[in-house]
Simulated scan of single mutants.
Amino acid sequence: MTPADFDIAGKGDAVRLRLTGDWTTGGLGRTAGRLESALAGASSIELDISGLGRLDTAGALALVRASRCSLPAEAWATRPEAGRIYAMVQRLGCEGVPPTRRSDPITRSFARIGHGLIDAGQEAMLSLAFLGRLIVAVGVMLRRPGRIRWPAWVSQTERAGLDALPIVVVTNFFIGAVVAFIGADLLTEFGAAVFTVELIAVSVLREFAVVITAVLLAGRSASAFAAEVGSMRMNQEVDAMRVMGVDPFQALVIPRLAALLVMLPLLTFAGMVAGLFGGMVVGWTQLNLGPAFFLDRIAQMPDVTNHLVVGLSKAPVFALVVAAIGCRQGMAVAGDVESLGRRVTAAVVQAIFAIILLDAVFALMFLELNY
């Protein structure tokens, strides 16, 4: 292989370019850069290919770029095969479709908003379709209780409920302790430190226990549901179930939904006890409010039962939302790992957002009911 080279005769706008050697991928080397610098000011180029060896698309591209598509077509008459290669590269490089003009930032911003709205609408429609299929599956299960898969229900109850008990108890303990610290520090300035007990009871029973427990299960169980069901979708196990006559909703969705529906109220109650215990420990150590006084003060609160009922009444709704979102995102997984990761992330984010939104709706509803 002879390395590519060239000679240039003449100066100014009109030059004569003589090519020598093999203008191929292996023979170019740094010749392309030197040629582009040498032809920088030339507008008329006469081409001599008498010394040209082989030519491929890489060499043709170097000539097109260096000459800025100004080499005459008749110069390739003695080498028609090389001329065809050069003409093809010149047509693609110089006569191709011009690059799409990038729109201005304002247009791109509105386009992103529009795409987001379309995606949100499609997501809402798919969620409604999932909800409809879930209602049908629940109706079939109630009509034919013999099809209930009790082993799956028990297994999911243990994994989604009992295994989450330690983290729920510990987290709510520290939440109750933090509320007690804040209340003790704030109410002591007004000489009302004793009302820290009421603050702890109301905040833990009514809001923090159920919300923190639901958020923990959203991060723990909703992601697990989406990953498990999504992996089965990727491995075509869900399709295999349908072929064998097994309803995926009966086998995969309903056991997980029932598990959270049963366990989230129980975990919420455990979180309430842990939160009150954390507040009691802080009140005992910081305010010298003994456990007997703490519990007696809570028992004497006129609305303590209402606060307990409000907190526990939210748990089943949060359980349905967390389980449904996790399973729905798992059912929407495509056949690649990237889709699985996106759906798991979406399951956690949507579940937490739904919990906060529903908690605000509950707060407004109970406020209107004066409960």
Score class of each variant (00 low, 15 high):
Gly96Tyr: 14
Thr100Glu: 09
Gly132Phe: 14
Arg91Leu: 10
Ala124Asp: 05
Lys11Leu: 08
Gly93Phe: 09
Pro72Ile: 08
Ile45Val: 10
Leu61Trp: 10
Asp7Ser: 15
Ala14Asn: 09
Met125His: 09
Glu95Val: 00
Gly139His: 12
Ser44Phe: 08
Thr107Ile: 15
Gly96Arg: 07
Met141Arg: 10
Ser44Gln: 15
Ala77Cys: 02
Trp23Tyr: 02
Arg16Leu: 13
Ile118Leu: 15
Gly29Ala: 03
Asp56Phe: 06
Arg34Cys: 08
Thr57Ser: 13
Gly96Lys: 13
Arg54Ala: 15
Leu35Ile: 12
Asp104Arg: 06
Ala14Gln: 04
Arg54Phe: 14
Lys11Gln: 12
Pro99His: 11
Ala77Ser: 08
Gly51Trp: 10
Ala124Leu: 14
Ile106Arg: 14
Ala32Trp: 02
Glu74Asn: 07
Asp22Phe: 10
Phe110Tyr: 10
Val64Asn: 03
Val89His: 05
Ser127His: 00
Ile118Tyr: 13
Cys69Phe: 11
Leu39Cys: 02
Leu134Met: 14
Asp56Glu: 03
Ala77Tyr: 00
Leu117Lys: 14
Ala60Leu: 01
Val89Asn: 00
Pro99Ser: 07
Arg91Trp: 12
Arg102Pro: 01
Met141Gln: 09
Cys94His: 06
Glu95Cys: 02
Lys11Glu: 01
Arg34Gly: 07
Pro72Val: 12
Ile118His: 15
Ala129Gly: 11
Ser67Asn: 01
Thr31Cys: 05
Leu117Ser: 14
Ala60Phe: 00
Arg133His: 08
Leu142Thr: 09
Asp56Arg: 06
Ile45Asp: 09
Asp48Gln: 03
Asp119Gly: 12
Thr24Ala: 06
Ala111Gly: 10
Ile45His: 08
Ala73Phe: 11
Gly26Gln: 11
Arg112Tyr: 13
Gly139Met: 08
Gly21Leu: 03
Glu123Cys: 12
Asp22Pro: 05
Leu142Ile: 10
Ala9His: 11
Arg144Asp: 15
Thr31Glu: 03
Leu128Ala: 15
Thr107Ser: 07
Thr31Phe: 02
Arg102Ser: 01
Val97Thr: 01
Arg144Gln: 13
Arg108Trp: 12
Gly116Tyr: 07
Met88Gly: 07
Leu128Trp: 13
Glu95Trp: 01
Thr78Glu: 12
Tyr86Arg: 00
Gly21Cys: 07
Leu55Ser: 02
Leu134Thr: 15
Ser44Trp: 05
Gly33Leu: 13
Leu47Thr: 09
Ala124Met: 15
Val15Asn: 04
Arg18Ser: 15
Arg101Met: 04
Leu126Asp: 08
